[in-house]
Design a protein around this nucleic acid. Sequence first.
DNA 1: CTTTTTTAATGGTACGACCATTAAGTCCTG
DNA 2: CAGGACTTAATGGTCGTACCATTAAAAAAG
Lengths: 242, 242
Amino acid sequence: MSDSCLFSPVQVGRAGEEVALQIEAAILGERILPGESLPSERELQAQFKTGRGVIREAMRALKQKGLIEIRKGARGGAFVKKLEVTNASESLALFLKQNRIDTAHLAEFRESIDRTITMLAITRGSAEQKQALVDGTKELQAYLTDSDPDLEKLAELDRELNISLAQMTGNPVFEWIMRALQLGFSSNDFALYEDLEFRTKTILNWCQTAEYIAANEMLQALSSIGAHYVLLRQCVERCQKK
Amino acid sequence: MSDSCLFSPVQVGRAGEEVALQIEAAILGERILPGESLPSERELQAQFKTGRGVIREAMRALKQKGLIEIRKGARGGAFVKKLEVTNASESLALFLKQNRIDTAHLAEFRESIDRTITMLAITRGSAEQKQALVDGTKELQAYLTDSDPDLEKLAELDRELNISLAQMTGNPVFEWIMRALQLGFSSNDFALYEDLEFRTKTILNWCQTAEYIAANEMLQALSSIGAHYVLLRQCVERCQKK
DNA sequence: CTTTTTTAATGGTACGACCATTAAGTCCTG
DNA sequence: CAGGACTTAATGGTCGTACCATTAAAAAAG
């Protein structure tokens, strides 16, 4: 960073907010690019003509927002981050956690997204991508005969399949939404793999869905997606009974 | 707050994070309920056996997360907030903003969401809600004859209509996503209202959509939504030519 | 040239003082 | 007694300094 006049002093109460806003504006306005570093705290303190505590609090807020990443030590400092979906996902997770979002509501949302994604994936996905999807489900099939599978691994595979499906739409928005949902609520799907019966059905359903997508059988694929959510709802219902 | 041992001391590097985590856990675990206040900063400083700066930074992070609200003065302090959709939406909006989403991709996503929302709104919305929607579009109609309307006001009305439509689904997830989209990208719709021709068509389209929804004419409503996005795409295309 | 040591820059913590704001209590006046 | 004006105490907000821990680069040693 040069000694140019990027920032202007601030004196009123809530100075921390002001500082954070100015820096945020500089980042969003691309006057500081991702990867670059902000001036050190002591330099900022001088530029803003304020105490170091104020700067630190502003930094904390920006870090929490996911705009910067902070590294200690020499040549350390605050580095502008390329914003990732993770932050939004965490907020979503927090929101859902405190507001006790009904699993049914979430499933409803996911189903609608899944249907759209499936349609787009069929019309836009390349043959290679479709084949890769089928291959992925084949890997899943290996767990059919395993009586005590690694559930973590299984859930991970499920996540990857969902995300690669979303990638096939060629629309990053769908990919981001899917990642957010996966990060926030893989726990729901987890239940689906715990019970042997549901696990078997879910894996088979995945395989079928992938086959339909690879064969460009849109209606069949959608129906298969629907079946998946029927399964999920049954599973949730059974879990709640216990 | 009593002087009970809610929190335990912390000494390692990154103490601020630890403090924030402990308090967040207390909030999420409902050991402190929304509306209640945390101990004062100086009290927390004593409980955590740390400096006040650490506490303040933790507070800043929690505030940014939307978990607490801070009031100055006597009987002030940090009050636990009931988390609202808005907080999570802002996060997503910020993310969308920095990542320069292609308008076409965004429109595609919005269209799919809009279609689902419309379907759910028709099947679940009450007669009152549907009427309110129609009334809202009537208000929009008033701008048809205005040759130089207040575009800000117009965009605000549009936002409200979209959000109330999302609320009719009875599913907070849809409301969340709609709010985020509105926060991040009302600017796109803005263009739609700037040009007289598009403005007229868009307003009429809104009215028609609302009528169809109120009349439970699902197919017609969906077709009307489709028409809206055709308009949007035309508008974007024209804007890019200039 | 490689390894080790030193060094300087930077974030993290602590303490202490003071200011600004605010709600509650207190006092004065009518 | 009622109501407004003043005082007070608690709390967040700011400032400054000193020191520690970490880290990467520079310097020294082999």
